[in-house]
Design a protein around this nucleic acid. Sequence first.
DNA 1: TGCCTTTTTGC
DNA 2: CAAAAAGGC
Length: 466
Amino acid sequence: MPDTAPTIMWFRDDLRLGDNPALCDAVSRGRVVCLYVHDPAFPLGGAEKWWLHGALSALDHDLRAQGGRLCIMAGDTHESVLWLAARTGAGAVVWNRRYGPRARQVDTDVKAALKARGVDAHSHPGNMLHEPWQVRTKQGTPFRVFTPWWRAVQAKGPPLPPLPAPDQPAFAVVPPEIGDRLVRPADLALLPVRPDWAQGLRAQWQPGEAAAHARLDAFVAERVHGYATQRELPAQPATSGLSPYLRFGHVSPRQVWHAVETLGPGDQDSACFLSEVGWRDFAHATLFDFPGMGTGNLRPEYDNMPWRHDPVALRAWQKGKTGYPIIDAGMRELWHTGWMHNRVRMVVASFLTKHLLLDWRVGEAWFADTLVDADAASNPFNWQWVAGCGLDAAPYFRVFNPVAQGEKFDPAGDYVRKWVPEIAHLPNKYIHAPWKAGPSAPGGYPAPIVDLAGGRARALAAWKAL
DNA sequence: TGCCTTTTTGC
DNA sequence: CAAAAAGGC
């Protein structure tokens, strides 16, 4: 009976019911089976795993409120999707697109295998403002520079208006013999035990679509005004905090765009914020067009950069014990909350790749393991941007001085005092350069692990020799 | 979405 | 001679 064949809605990085084109397609076809596959071939960082546990629980909760449920499978993606399609007698499988090379390969293979078995398969644009291939130069080539790309995006007019969540969706009953293969979020062992390092994450974040919209609404009401200037100050609660919600698709960039754009297109603050959302799209479009971005320098001359091997320095950077307060505050914020202020991300990344001359991929890996918002596009894109090896990157000679950056963007030292309490007693004069306060290391705070002038000179010499 | 040094300016 | 501008990395 073809009219009773269910449609599988395959959730991936789009864990929401609102503005979900694939879900709307599935509901329009009849009864729906909702699927998520947790595949060890696509490993997540520790913070992402913590987030995913809450995200899957929230999505299952939201589906149950509508009379459905989330079917979670653990194992090989291709095998899992094909297995569920066969066992449920699905007539179609639908999903929203991903843009990384490995994910695209899997999706292409799954689509072909489904169609070979007579199952319809359809992918949708759900996670970007625009699909990468929709924004092209006059020559039809990919943009390599953000500003002209962003101008071309804006010339296209507003992105598609967000779709409402499906009204009264019909869900297929999942038979018990299929239920035996399904798992609960707890079975995926996503949460840390011994040690439980997630207290800070629990205190700061609530995964899920409802929390995403609460955060978006609060940002639009309270923080867009003044964003353009305040966003640079890490001690201020001036940023949106939406990055992990966008990472897991609890909210779509189109929803964000339309919520902010209602404030008026000429507004400086909303324009500044929307361009940050634009950078997210640009990173994904760049990964789509340059699929090696995740692991290889986009500027091949950097293949000859003499990156150092220095596990002691790397460990100090990771632990927030470099002796430079703004660096250590950022790295401790990251470890404690799974997030770091963007200004500080640039400073710590510059310090790692330039003053310490360590490979950007080492920093990217640490961020991927500790950030709740890391994704396959934004994280390597931004590291390549800072390191200088990206297509539209900051030039290598632009070296952030952690003392100068601290004094400029944390002038009262509030950010440093919050995360580096052992030097909180120092006056503002010394808060970003505690070694100047006296010979004794206050409170056990380490001496600087590298000389700023020497590290800078070493990095510039290495770059000149490329 | 620099930093540092040198040169020029303006008093 | 201090501050601003310029220039190179």
